[in-house]
Each structure stands twice: as C-alpha cells, then as structure tokens.
Simulated assay, not measured.
Amino acid sequence: MAETTIRFGILGCADIARKLSRAITLSPNATLHAVASRSVDKATAFASANGFPPASKIYGSYEALLDDPDVDAVYVPLPTSLHVHWAVLVAQKKKHLLLEKPVALNAAEFDKIVDACESNGVQLMDGTMWMHHPRTAKMAEFLSDERRFGRLQKVHVLFTYGADPDFLKNDIRVKPDLDALGSLGDIGWYCIRAILWAANFELPKTVIALRDPQLNEAGVILSCGASLYWEDGKSATFHCSFLSNLTMDITAIGTKGSLHVHDFVIPYQEKEASFFAGSESGFNDLVTAWSSEPSKHIVTTELPQEAQMVREFARLVGDIRFKSLKPEKKWPTISRKTQLVVDAVKASIEKGFEAVHIQEQASVAVLSGLDYLKKNLMGRST
C-alpha cells in the first residue's frame, strides 16, 4: 500500500533548512510544497537552490504560507527566541509542526507550544534527527538487554566542534536576542537527549553544572557541561563546546556491559553507522590483552536519518489526517524532558553551580504520553 504524501511548508531560509529540504525530497511520503521568507527574492533563490518542485509556492511572508490551505505540515528552523510565537501560530492554523531544536528558551515557553498543538489536534516533533536512525533502535536493544548489558550505571556524552571566528562573532547561536542558550541549546541538547535516551527517559533528580563554562562578551554560553544524578545511584556527565575539535561520543556503562559510539549525532557515513558493544569484558591471565573484546555492529539504512525523521513525522501526520488517529504524545514528552534538563543546567550555572532539583510540573497533555513511553519507545521495554 502506497504511503500518503504530506505537503510541507518551510518557514524561513535558515541554513539547516537546506538539509531538511533534501530530507523531505528523499522521504517517500513527503513533498516540498512551499517556502516563506521575509523576502520573495530570498525565498525564490532558496527554492531554486534546494530542488523545490516547479509548482511549489513562494511566499514573501510567514503568514502567507500559514494561510495556504494545501500546506499539511510546517518545518520551523527559526531562531529559538521566535519559536513560541510562530509555533503557536502554526498549530492555530491546524498545521502539523516539525520544530527545530532547542524547542524553546525554557519549558514554560514550550508548554505554550504543546498546549496549542494539543488544543488544535496537530502533531508535534522536534528535529533531533539521530533518534530516527535505525542504529539508535539497535543500540537501545542492547541497553535494554539485562543479560548482556545489565543495569545502567554511568553515561558520558560529548559533542564539540571548533567554530570559526566568523561563527563566534556573527552566528545566531551566539546572539543573546536570537539563541540565548548558545552551545547548551544547540549541541548540549543532543548530549542531554542521549543521556535521557540511555536512561530510558527517566528524568534525573539532580543536575549540577560543571564549573568554569566559557561565555562570550554578551553572556552566551560557548562551552559548558553538567553532571546528572538519579535516586537509584546512576549518574551521567556531558560536555558541549563551540571551542574544541569535532567529537560526538556516547559511552554507556552497565553492570555487565558497555556501549560506545563515536558519531552519534552525524554518522561518519550517511547510509552506514556503527557502534561497539561489550559484555563481561576482562583481561587474559597475563593481563596483556582483553579476553572478551567489544564487538562492532554495523547498521545500514537506505534513507539518511533526517529523511527517516521526516518519514516518521509524515506517517504520524497521515494517520491523523486520513485515519482519524490522535497525535502521538511520545515526541513532545521527550522534548519536554530534554528542555527541563537544559533549564536545570542553565539554572545551576546562574546559581553558582548549585545543585538544581528537577520537579516536573508537566501539563496534562504531556503527561498523557508517559504510559506509551514506558511500553514502546525506540525498541525499549521497562
């Protein structure tokens, strides 16, 4: 049975929108229908450069795109400071919402977005693309295997890249009025998501920011990290930075096994990704070599992870439009948990690296997805 095609509009011509335009083109159940910019000329040039179909619509305002009755879903790659305004308008126009991360400047803003999506019956998903790579599901299977991995004890995550001087001076991610969360929101989001994913999306009870984060002159975070603690004894750390060489590592350690991945956000190769898994590793009798080496697991995919994300989002939209199903709650639930930890790290920095205790005060709309999370999330079971 052929997949129904969902028509996408893109709100803005941000650089990341180039990647999502390609992903929409590659997805078998999605098509590029419209793009909007504050300038018709800019929108026209973007459409031409990014393979939009000849019949696609070009708009010189965001409002005009949202008024297009043929747009089913909208991708919003705007600066984080603009998310709450435009995301709420997208939902009010009954358009389904694929929202770039970080989803908001704080959880209170995100709750406004969730409320708008819930009250208008539209699907919400954030743009954390690596969650949709089939490798992620395979790694989750290993982490949930009590025989091979055991009980999770520690997680350590790194995402850093060396931004050039122009980026550090002019990019929106270093501007307090555009993306005030800086590296914490841009790449720390991925680190926090990875930690929560490894912990089966159980929120930590305590978050403590690591000392000596690096800020620019405007006070935007360029480099930071934090430690996270759970009541059952497991813990995690992460570090994110615009000032260090490119690194994308997850290490998860259990009582019986360990998992390592070195390219978790963007795989070294688009259609092939790997990870290392070890169980009950040890040394030989002379302690000169490992007696049980971690094994390398390779996972292939026909579609890149961004297209996998679009395909899943479009499938959910199609289920709502053509099968009268309700919007899936797991994705906004995951987004909000990630945002809560981002907020806690920021609060800890601002409080002089004091411990911040996370007390989730979720809306009914978000909490209603928790039962689904417990039973069916990325191949995991509780």
Rank of each mutant, 00 (worst) to 15 (best):
D232Y: 01
S61Y: 06
N106A: 09
S281D: 05
E302I: 00
S37A: 15
I221G: 01
D212I: 00
T44Q: 13
I195N: 02
D232F: 06
T31S: 15
A14P: 03
A344P: 07
I187F: 04
T300P: 00
A17W: 01
Y75Q: 10
S363Y: 01
Q269Y: 09
F46S: 11
P102R: 07
R135C: 08
V366S: 08
P327L: 07
T251C: 09
P102T: 13
L215I: 03
S279I: 05
I266P: 00
D166H: 10
K271N: 12
I334A: 15
S183C: 12
I113N: 09
S223T: 08
S227E: 12
A14V: 01
A362N: 10
E231L: 05
A365H: 09
A273F: 01
S363F: 00
M131R: 14
T333A: 11
A64G: 11
D15G: 03
S258K: 05
H260W: 11
S291K: 09
T5N: 08
S37C: 13
S368G: 15
I208H: 00
R135W: 11
K94C: 10
D343A: 07
G369E: 08
S348T: 01
I6A: 05
Q153R: 14
R211H: 10
Q305G: 02
L124A: 12
F264T: 07
F110I: 05
G12L: 04
F201V: 00
Q153E: 15
F313W: 04
N106M: 06
L65E: 09
K169E: 15
D177Y: 11
A47H: 04
I221N: 02
R173G: 02
G282E: 04
S223D: 08
V366R: 00
D166R: 09
A365T: 01
G233P: 05
D67Y: 07
A252G: 02
I253N: 01
T31P: 03
W230C: 02
K112V: 04
S223H: 05
Q308C: 14
G121D: 14
D263Y: 06
H96T: 13
S241K: 00
K329E: 09
R7F: 06
F46D: 13
L97I: 12
D164R: 07
D232C: 08
L259C: 06
L303V: 06
P213T: 03
K375Y: 01
A104D: 10
K346D: 05
D68M: 07
I172W: 06
F52I: 09
C13E: 10
G233L: 07
P165C: 06
L184H: 04
D371E: 12
H156R: 10
Q92P: 07
D186F: 08
M139Y: 05
G369A: 06
L20V: 08
R173F: 12
E146S: 15
T160P: 01
L99M: 15
P332L: 10
D115T: 11
G352M: 05
I24F: 14
L215M: 13
R336G: 01
D232H: 10
